[in-house]
Amino acid sequence: MKDDLKIFSGNSNIPLAQKICDAMDRPLSHLAISKFSNDNMHVQVQDNVRERDVFVIQSFTHPVSDHIMELLVTLDALRSASARRVTAVIPYFSYARSDKKDASRISIVGRLMADLLKTAGADRVLTMDLHAAAVHGFFSVPVDHLTASPLIMDYFRKNLDLDNVVAVATDAGGAKRVGHFATRLNVPMAIIDKRRVSDTEVKQGLVVGDVVGKDVIIYDDEISTGGTLLTTVDTLKEAGVGNIYVGATHPVLCGQAVENLGKSSVKEVVVTNTVDIPREKQIDMISCLSVAPILAEAIRRIHTGESVGELFPD
Rank of each mutant, 00 (worst) to 15 (best):
G305D: 10
E306T: 03
D210G: 10
A175R: 07
F93W: 07
G262Y: 01
F60L: 12
H131W: 11
V168M: 10
D76E: 14
D47W: 03
D144K: 05
H145D: 09
G121K: 10
T183V: 08
T119W: 11
G227M: 08
D4P: 13
V208D: 10
R195T: 10
L289T: 01
L151E: 03
N38L: 04
I7D: 04
E201C: 09
N159P: 09
P293R: 00
A83F: 07
D3Q: 15
T228I: 06
S65D: 14
F93E: 00
N13W: 09
F312E: 06
D25K: 11
A148M: 04
A167G: 06
Q46E: 13
T274D: 10
I277P: 07
D215K: 03
V178S: 06
M285L: 14
H250L: 02
G179I: 02
E51C: 11
N273I: 06
L236N: 01
R184S: 13
A120L: 08
D171N: 08
Y219D: 12
I33A: 01
V308A: 00
D25G: 10
V211E: 13
G110P: 10
L130R: 04
I152C: 06
H303F: 04
A120W: 08
D4I: 13
V168A: 10
C21T: 13
K203C: 14
P15T: 11
H67G: 10
G205T: 12
A298I: 02
Y92D: 05
V241H: 07
A292N: 03
E306F: 08
L28Q: 02
R196H: 12
L185Q: 05
T232H: 04
Q44N: 13
A175P: 06
G226K: 02
P15V: 12
S140G: 04
R79T: 14
H131N: 11
Y155A: 01
D102N: 14
L71I: 04
V241Y: 06
R300F: 08
A172E: 13
S307V: 08
S98M: 13
R177T: 12
D39G: 07
R79V: 09
Y245V: 01
P15A: 08
I299K: 03
S264T: 07
D199Y: 08
G309S: 15
E259D: 15
V89W: 01
D53H: 12
E70C: 06
L236V: 00
T61K: 05
R111C: 06
I277H: 05
M128W: 02
I90C: 02
L146V: 10
Q44R: 15
C254N: 15
S37W: 00
T225K: 04
S224K: 08
R97G: 00
L112M: 12
D102C: 11
A257R: 00
E259L: 13
E297F: 05
G226I: 01
V168F: 09
F55Q: 01
S37I: 02
Q58M: 02
P63V: 07
D25Q: 14
G240I: 00
R105W: 02
M1H: 15
I302R: 01
A169T: 04
G226E: 05
D193G: 03
D163V: 09
L31A: 04
T231W: 01
S94F: 11
I277T: 13
G121Q: 11
I217W: 10
V246I: 01
E268Q: 12
L151S: 03
G305K: 07
N164W: 07
L311P: 03
L206G: 14
L253A: 00
I108Y: 09
V308R: 00
R124G: 14
D3N: 15
G227W: 05
L71W: 00
